[in-house]
Structures are given as structure tokens and as C-alpha cells.
Design a protein around this nucleic acid. Structure first.
Length: 406
RNA sequence: CGGGCUGUCGUAUAAUGGUAGUAUACGUGCUUUGGGAGCACGCGGCUUGGGUUCGAUUCCCAGCAGCCCGACCA
């Protein structure tokens, strides 16, 4: 993409009303736009990141048999009333000025909705197990939105739901999902702790969260960085400096950001919706469910929080909006290199604007693409290539450069 | 929802009870080109309502909005 065509621009200064680093960088560099507190729009650069993350999530969910769907965001009150969760909703009045009681909520989670859908198709043990997921906007009536994209009233979430004939089969799948989640976060450049936690609104049993160590996190965990096991301080009996119950290494107390969670739901929702099946012996049984979430937009913010320097973002390669930032300084042109990269399907942002070298370099650091390639009258026929996470640049010819970034 | 702080050109800021300034962005022209270039000209602003006052962007009250702390929470 030509940077001169990008409709967003980079601000000279940080927004005055944001303290959270993810919001400061992402807003200033034009990745996102704040419409209201905790309500953000994704602009071209930001949406590219979201798409990268979503694609990784899709690949890993598909790999464990998840079938992608897209459910309604407006939920009649009967759904949440069936499970006694109607008092925690974000309500929606269908007609403005309507004085009647609200009868719909806007989606904050989909256990009830998918349980009802599943009821239509599940009759026999032969129909189980299966899993379905979606990536969709979730709405939460947060008393206090904060920390940029980390806690919004509206956010993007991947939610996966699984259906089983027994607790044992749920456990099997639950672990499979846990492993897929570690893969997702790893591919996104994040080291996540597999963390024992409480179930909250969703289930009475213990659950697991995926936590990324960060000072700005809202959670406190006791974590073993040797085997990546952790326990949330809400439920843990571990101590800072104690021994990891899994591998015996030292436990450290740390603040962390929750970027995913997995819930063994049991039969709470299938009971509420009479989601039954007949087993091999012809006995009627309740379907056993699990639900599994990844905060897609929160993941983007987390990547910024854990990967940046004083000059800007340092995107993990797999989720960077582009792979290469190509800068033409001064009178020079990098049009031919740009075309070559595009022919090789290398995602490149070409700064072809008529602005000073300093401005291009500063803004390039802020945007934080993995590779910066500079062409100027100093480089001659060569290209100065620098990785965003390294200090030194290298001069190389076009052939070598294309080989490295392809 | 309780507490605190803050609302001034697009952005970031300054001053002021009596004509609101600077930087940057933007427009025009010329020069310039390796870490946010220079000159000239131009465009553009006091969150809303009430109160005090001859006069309020400024002081007071309330609302609204944003951020932070707490409670709550993916």
C-alpha cells in the first residue's frame, strides 16, 4: 500500500486523555479511533492487525474441528431469563422513545443462543461431539471502561462452544482447546500462562485463563515461567517464591492481562434449554457443554503493551499490519522495489510521501513494522534494511532483501 | 456507582474578569531532504446550562464528556 493514499495520518503528539500505552500508540499512529470511552473503531492499520489475529485464530480453531458461524447479536430476553442472567445485560430498545420494558439485549455472550440452536440439530449421541465458533463484537455494560482497548464496553471476541455426550469427552476437548490457545498466542508473539481460575458468571467449576505478564494487567497470578503454569490469586494457595506444583521450579507473583479463557460449562445451559440426546442405550441425557473465549481486540492491545520501546510499537511479525515499511528518502524512489515486493506477495507499506526524511523515520518507528527498508541518495543501488527490534541496519542489494522478507 | 483530576483552533499547549497567544497540522508559493526542515501569506478555537458581574473562556453551581483510583469485570 502507498502511504500517501492511507486516509489516516500520524499525530505529532500523543492524545492528551489517554494514559494507557496501547491507546497512546494506537491512537496516535492512526490504528484506532476512540468514539467514546471504551468504544473504538478500527482504522486501516488497526483493522489489518485484527484481521491477522483473526486469521490465526480461525486456523487454529478450524484445526480442532471448530466450525465457524456468526450468531445474532440481538437476543430476546427469553434467552438470558432461561439461565437467570437477564440482570447483567446491555439492553436494547428496538424503537427509540419506547417506554415499554426492554425486551432484547445486545450480545455479551452466546451460551444461551447456541444452546437453543444446538437443540434443533442434536438428537442422538451420533450428533456429538461438535464445536462451533464465531468472531464477533461483544457488548459489556462496564461500570468503568479503561486502559484503552484492554477494557472496553464493546470489543471483539472469538467465542467457541463445544457439545459432548459426557464430562470425559468434554475434558478431552477442553485440553485440546487449551493447547490450541497456546498455539494461537504463541503465533501472535505472546507468551501466555495457563492459569487456574474461578468461573465467574459462566460456571461454578474452576476454569483456566490465559494470562500474559504485564504491569498494566488487572489480574495477579502466581506463575512459573519454566513450565508456564500459573494460578490466579483469586483461587491460588501458592506464594511468591514458592514451588511450582507442576514442575517444582520457582513461582513468581506477577500482574497479568487475561487474553483468553476456557470454561467447562457442564449441563447448566443444556438444562435450561432442554438440550438432550439419546445415548447408545436409548437413555435421554443432557448434553455437556464447554465455552472458550479469546479477546481479539484485547490481544492486539496486549501485544502493544508487551512489545514496544520509547519510539513506538514493535509488532510481532505474524500480526503486524504490513511486513515491510519501505521508505524513500529525499529525491529517491523505491517504486521498483515496491512493485517487486508486491509481485512476491510481501505486504509492504511504501512511504512515498513528499515529507522530510526525519518525519518518515520517526513515524516508521512509531508504526513499528518488522522490517524497515530505506532507499536514499546515500544508499545508491543498495537498500538499508533494519529490523524494528534490532539496533543495527544492513546494506544489501534488492535480491538479498527480497529473499530475507519473502 | 463512590472519590480525584481535567475540558481553550484538527492535534498539543499558554495566558486572561474587558480584542485569546504559541507550536504543529491544513491551504498557497518558494527553498530544503538521513532522525518530526526554513521563510512568507492564509484558514481555524474558549464543553453545555444557570448564577455572580457593567462585562465571564476566566469566579461559583449544576450537567455532559474524558482520564485516573476504588467497587465491578473478558
Amino acid at each position: 500500500m502507498l502511504q500517501s493514499k492511507l486516509f489516516t495520518k500520524i499525530e505529532r503528539s500523543f492524545p492528551k486523555d489517554e494514559e494507557a500505552l496501547n491507546a497512546r500508540f494506537l491512537e496516535r499512529a492512526g490504528f484506532i479511533y476512540k468514539n467514546s470511552a471504551g468504544v473504538y473503531s478500527y482504522l486501516p492499520l488497526g483493522w489489518r492487525v485484527i484481521k491477522k489475529i483473526s486469521d490465526i485464530v480461525r486456523e487454529e480453531m478450524d484445526a480442532i474441528g471448530g466450525q465457524e458461524i456468526f450468531m445474532a447479536a440481538l437476543h430476546d430476553k427469553r434467552y438470558l431469563k432461561a439461565t437467570g442472567r437477564w440482570d447483567v445485560e446491555v439492553v436494547f430498545k428496538v424503537i427509540e422513545g419506547d417506554k415499554r420494558e426492554p425486551s432484547f439485549n445486545i450480545s455479551w455472550t452466546h451460551e444461551e443462543v447456541i444452546a437453543e440452536i444446538a437443540k434443533k440439530y442434536v438428537n442422538s449421541y451420533r450428533d456429538l461431539p461438535f464445536a462451533a465458533y464465531q468472531i464477533q463484537t461483544k457488548f459489556r455494560n462496564e461500570p468503568r471502561a479503561k486502559s484503552g482497548l484492554l477494557r472496553g464496553r464493546e470489543f471483539l471476541m472469538k467465542d467457541l462452544y463445544s457439545f459432548h455426550e459426557s464430562e470425559e469427552d468434554l475434558s478431552r476437548y477442553y485440553e485440546e482447546v487449551g493447547k490450541a490457545y497456546i498455539k494461537v498466542f504463541g503465533r501472535c508473539g505472546l507468551k501466555a500462562f495457563y492459569t487456574l481460575a474461578a468461573g465467574g458468571e459462566f460456571t461454578a467449576s474452576n476454569t483456566h485463563e490465559f494470562q500474559v505478564a504485564s504491569e498494566v494487567g488487572e489480574d495477579t497470578i502466581f506463575a512459573c515461567s519454566s513450565c508456564m503454569y500459573a494460578e490466579n490469586s483469586e483461587v491460588s494457595k501458592l506464594k511468591d517464591g514458592g514451588k511450582c506444583p507442576k514442575c517444582g521450579e520457582k513461582i513468581k507473583e506477577t500482574k497479568s492481562i487475561e487474553i483468553g479463557n476456557i470454561f467447562p460449562l457442564g449441563t447448566k445451559y443444556s438444562e435450561a434449554f432442554n438440550l438432550n440426546f439419546l445415548d447408545k442405550e436409548g437413555n435421554k441425557k443432557l448434553v455437556v457443554m464447554g465455552s472458550y473465549g479469546i479477546g481479539v481486540s484485547r490481544l492486539m492491545a496486549t501485544a502493544v503493551e508487551v512489545s514496544h520501546d520509547e519510539k513506538g510499537i514493535i509488532w510481532p511479525e505474524a500480526i503486524a499490519p504490513f511486513r515491510v515499511h519501505l521508505l524513500a528518502l529525499g529525491e529517491s524512489s523505491a517504486k521498483d522495489i515496491y512493485n517487486d515486493l508486491q509481485n512476491k506477495d510481501v505486504e509492504v507499506l511504501y512511504d512515498d510521501r513528499d515529507v522530510s526524511p526525519g518525519e518518515k523515520l520517526v513515524e516508521s518507528d512509531l508504526i513499528g513494522l518488522p522490517f524497515r527498508a530505506v532507499v536514499s541518495n546515500k544508499t545508491g543501488n543498495m537498500i538499508e534494511v533494519k529490523r524494528r527490534n534490532e539496533k543495527e541496519s544492513k546494506l544489501m542489494d534488492k535480491k538479498e532483501f527480497i529473499k530475507i522478507v519473502s
